[in-house]
Design a protein around this nucleic acid. Structure first.
Lengths: 204, 204, 204, 204
DNA sequence: CATGAATGAGAATTCATTCAT
DNA sequence: AATGAATGAATTCTCATTCAT
């Protein structure tokens, strides 16, 4: 019947991703995925153990890239006390983020907005938590090195800033229509905004 | 059997709110709500047309308060070009927000995180959109009044800032454990952070 | 459509019993039960929480009768050291059993042979265990009262005798075709057989 | 990948036996058997026509041994009118049984308790039926040879005694924990019990 | 205002088996 | 002898909602 043979798995993944983006993980139906993939419903289970495994496989590449990026930024040679205040540094980091976003726009959308019910539903919260801890550690080091600076920032503020990062990613990812130039404008503005903000906070 | 008679509706609303907070709108079950309310399942439909109407009714008070607050802040006498840069002004506004949050913590949680599947699922997006338009109008007026200031902020930046506000509300609402003092610290920090940011952006 | 209205539950129970007797608990299908009952599949779940609850309800009467009979026989005034050796006593007990069997033939069949997968699947084993303990207690008392008798019977023998009782019930229940006279013959023979057996064992 | 090549069949049989013992014939899954055997699911069908054939092959040895034992005992030179009443004779027979049980404990368990759904599910009943006929023939011969003895035993009693034999086998097979000495005690007791029983029945 | 029965579509997953290679 | 894809029917149970009384 179907012309294709072995790419069933790829078709399933492709269709599943589309369905997840339309309905969300929980409301996406295996029946529909099967039908749209031109694959027998039960046959899907020869490729994936369950719906969650499909979701995770759809997400695997972005998760790996995400993890790699975070680890790179946390690598010892990059640990630098200017993270928040140095706009060059921020530029690099943001551009990395933008690269990720451009490549994995759909997956990030799924991760941030459509993962409810899957085993990745807590990813965002967990990542925020992790970022918060990283942020606290930065401030701790700062306090040691530059005692004259105010590094006495409340934990909840750091948490909120981490959350904002995720929020920004969510916004960029959601707005497919943004031109590159618009994003660049935004980035410039955000860097100006936040570096000024951090300077003020820490000079107090 | 049941002592109460007419407060059935109140009991339904109370139980429904709890269920929505536990399961989310979509996954909350009418059966469970009926059982926990001590009300016959079909009887619920004498009080509400459907599950969505329950959700909206649960949410009606917070929506009204929200609307009122926004309208108040947008009232002509409050329109003021110091919105972003004057920290006193921000303080007032934030305190209003905090009052709302304290009073409607659960409802806001529902609105921001548990409304998927309901007719209010787009509330957050719509509100962000509205705020964005308001923000744009402010800047427009600013440009007219103080031509020397930079009011050429990209629409997406404004949108993102609006989104951040919602995000912050979400964070505060989520963290029930925060002490008042911690929130005060956070507010002071955030005001310092953002007013500095805005000043820098507009002076450019 | 259907002429009957309120007896749906009864029809479901009746049909379910039939299906269980044909297919066994596990292989009986809710769909089939629904179809044969002239009831919508999902409607069954207005009457019963799940398949197991149907089974238990089908079985409730026989379980109660069973329990009552056992308790009666274990009542203090009936505790008697001639249980095994006195044929009159056995006659009474057996006749009670036969009454039960006649009344609950199908249910007993379900309980003994068709309960696999249900929450009652261990009933037989548990009952044998209980009977074994009761048997041991009898022998213990006997030892105290008539020291000259041999009451040193191995636990496994007692267990096996208990199991045999269940086995006999199973056989009688299975053979619907037996005439009352045939059962009477059997009972007479079995009593002769077993009382002689016990006497020999205990005189040793 | 796998070191073994041709013993695939043996591995399948071994694993299948384990699965049957855990889940029963019907609930044992071909997929699981394949996975645990390290054999492709469809490859199993190169060795066996279907699940039933696996079960039968697992059971073939015990069935042959069972058949042989029964035939031996029914051989003309062994036909003896003391079957029931002579304890020496019973001892021999029982020891044969115990040998079988020790060697084929698992298979007997499968045959008696886990064969539901397979083509051997009626083995027990059929064997009981066969034993019953054999028993009747014995009694018939007895009646001819010793007219003064009561050989007028009801068919259902004979059937039940045959069933008891199977029941006893089931109990012994089930209780893996029994020591040899405990089994010996039990056998001695059972022989005493049943020979006394039979004597009483036939002298009447 | 309340009840309980009914509906019909929907969910994910599992099954033994077959087929083409 | 082995693989992996495919099949098609089956499973129990849940859902929001409606209807007649």
């Amino acid at each position: 019947m179907q012309i294709q043979k072995e790419d069933s798995k790829e078709r399933i993944l492709k269709v599943a991703k589309e369905e997840f983006l339309i309905k969300g993980f929980k409301d996406a139906s295996m029946r529909v995925i099967a039908k749209k993939s031109g694959v027998g419903l039960s046959n899907i289970y020869n490729y994936f153990r369950n719906k969650d495994e499909i979701f995770c496989e759809v997400m695997s590449s972005v998760l790996a890239a995400f993890r790699k990026m975070v680890d790179d930024h946390n690598a010892p040679e990059h640990i630098n006390l200017n993270v928040f205040t140095n706009s060059d540094f921020q530029h690099i980091m943001i551009n990395d983020f933008l690269g990720l976003i451009n490549k994995y726009r759909q997956e990030l959308k799924l991760l941030l907005f459509y993962s409810h019910g899957s085993s990745l539903e807590n990813f965002k919260e967990e990542f925020i938590q992790e970022s918060t801890e990283t942020g606290k550690a930065y401030l701790q080091k700062m306090k040691e090195k530059y005692p004259h600076l105010n590094s006495n920032i409340s934990p909840f503020f750091i948490h909120t800033i981490s959350s904002m990062w995720m929020n920004i990613i969510g916004e960029v990812v959601t707005h497919d229509e943004l031109l590159d130039s618009e994003i660049e404008d935004f980035v410039r503005e955000y860097i100006a905004f936040s570096t000024a903000g951090w300077k003020r906070l820490m000079k107090a």
